[in-house]
Amino acid sequence: MPDIVTAEPDAGRSQPRRPAGRSAKYRRLRASLAPLPWIGPAIALIALVVIWPVVVMVQTSFQNVSALGITLGSAGLRNYSAVLDNPNLPGILVRTVIWVAAVVGITLFISLGLAQLYNQRFPGRRLTRWAIIAPWAASVLMTALIFRWMLDADHGVVNVFLHDLGIVSSFNSNEADWLGRPDSALAWMIAVAVFVSLPFTTYVLLAGLQTIPAELYEAARVDGASPWQTYRRITLPLLRPAFLIAAVINLMNVFNSFPIIWEMTNGGPGYETSTSTIFMYDLKNTFVGQAAAMSIINFAIVVVIVAAFVRLNRRSLQEAR
């Protein structure tokens, strides 16, 4: 950048060639504006659907908006202090960490195995590779809704199955009401989130596996490495870039995940199964300004998590490029 900047004044310094310089400048301006018709619509779209809402959200977070949506004037920093003083917030943040860590961790672990499996040749591989796309292709809301029905305390298929096995002794009991108890509800929702995150993660890892040259495995075999040694010393290190990309994208996705929890428990009872995203949405019912403030806090959390993650793994991510 600096050397380009110093090149600029030279053009205008030689007096006699001034008119030429001006037209050169004009030509350069035209040249630099030339891409605008092509990228203009994209910029306009981004401005309209991304930047403008962000501007309004930041504005709203400093406003006092009544529960009926009437703007009552400026709130200063009161929305932020009210959110941070909310007695439910610490529990929600802890739960968000558990939610994100559990879903991303379990997803990556299972996906490693699945990707390894799909990288082998076996009859029906094509079919199973297609099959794993199903949870990805189906609407997440629909998946969550189906799981909610499957867990119904009176006639859900999961309860019928567990009842037949003798694990659940009676229907319509607290024992059968998986989504009514915060801890079991969270566990089930983590399972659903893992289920819908698997396809994408598996495919990213599978793509990573396919970039590892076969010669390396051959060399390892010649050197007499055991399968476990081969996996640890060759597969895992070379898979690292793909693994990290899958991890970063899942971190953001799962943190912002809304439909699963909203559909299955609404974040209740109270806020006992809410993550910070659900909490933000709930606040919107009553305190629009606080909800905007919470959105900004959420955004900051995501940026910090991802920045920290990228910084820790900078070298590996550079290799990925």
């Binding site: 319509n172 989504l179 009514g180 428990t265 109270g270």
Partner: peptide
């Protein structure tokens, strides 16, 4: 609600 004679999960029903 704890007696089990209401529907389960009264807090979310």
């Amino acid at each position: 609600a704890a007696s089990g004679d209401t529907e389960p999960g009264a807090g979310t029903a």
